[in-house]
Amino acid sequence: MTREITLSKAVNEAIAEEMRRDPAIVLLGEDVAEAGTPFKVLSGLVEEFGTDRVIDTPISEPGFMGIAVGAAMTGLRPIVDLMFGDFLYLVMDQLCNQAAKTHYMSGGKLKVPLVLRTNMGATRRSAAQHSQSLQALVAHIPGLKVAMPSSAYEAKGLLKTAIRDDNPVVIFEDKLMYNDKAPVPEEEYLIPFGKAHIKREGRDVTLVATSSMVQVAEQAAETLALEGISAEIVDPRTIVPLDEETILRSVRKTSRAIVIDEGHQSYGVTAEIAARISEKAFYHLDAPVIRMGAMDVPVPFSPALEDITVPTAAGVVENARRICRGELVHAA
């Protein structure tokens, strides 16, 4: 049986199901208990699992991140709620110097099975410190896995896998998608890491898109179809590990690729994926690989400015048209 539920509900269900299954799982974060987070994603969990397992913390991101690392090393399986992705900067030492390296530095003796749930996404009129998409920052660090769900279905399946994984996993939810509904099975399911999903099949151009950019790619593909351009959409679902094989297979077929992610374009997720395509499928390409990330500016507040900083369907359509016609997107 499948029903339509919101991404927020999908996350809540994933956590509740896993907490019922495994008593070692605890939730830590600011206002996670009675308040159920500012986004109300965790509502109802404290009523079922109590304050021993759904733990409200002070506003001490490095502190509770560090506590989660130590707890994970000694038998608990913490899920940390980081209220905004922008606060990643505050937990970087505990996440990147401690959690990510402990297994390696101990020669495989210690494990850090924890999940850091946080969010991303601009155009919520929240300005520069509450709008960033910082997945590239953590994807750069060996030892961390990074998941980017593109709908309620992925949000549930990827989160359940993240909770069962024995490594530190960072999962980014797009905060503009919390109320978006998608069909989600009633039965239990998990989505494996490192396995991309072909969201739409096509012949002429591959759109590799993450998180909410999958919706942008879908809108673009509809428009392109009317013009006779057939776009294939690949959703990597996890950027670490990355299912390079599926991406390359698609590009070898279409000979063109546009990579879309909401993080800043420079040194970003789009750059990494585009580079791999160029290195490994170069002789199959009929056009340069195009990156579409957020503009390299702090996210502005004014709607008039903010909306032009992120990739849009219209922008994807325009770039796809050009590379399919053999025109240059960037001057040679």
Binding site: G63, V69, A71, M73
Partner: peptide, 8 residues
């Protein structure tokens, strides 16, 4: 943090 988490 790690020590405190171990105590948790």
């Amino acid at each position: 943090g790690i020590a405190t988490g171990s105590a948790l």
